[in-house]
Amino acid sequence: MCTMIAMSAAVTGMGKGADGWFRVNQATVGYDHATHSGTEHALLLDFTNYELGVDARVALELDLASGRALMAQLQSAIEAAEASERVA
């Protein structure tokens, strides 16, 4: 099925795609048809800069457990980073 689940956020950073590093300005998180993971659906993470073209994209297809694990570690890393900044 097409879930049409997709949500985007503006981000600031760099991503490495097929042609090297580029500035990313949008992150989209979806859950819909997978194209490469071999499952019907996957958590779809796209870091993009469509000002540079549709192929300015760093893409991930993850299962939901991986997404939760990633989210937890991302949260931990951000909290640790903020704590270290306070110490510094």
């Binding site: 997709a6 796209d46 469509y50 549709v54 893409a59």
Partner: peptide, 19 residues
Amino acid sequence: RYGHGAPDDVAAKVRADGG
């Protein structure tokens, strides 16, 4: 109308734009 590239790259842009 969304641009050209690998089909999954184009589809990702369409998805991000709400379909």
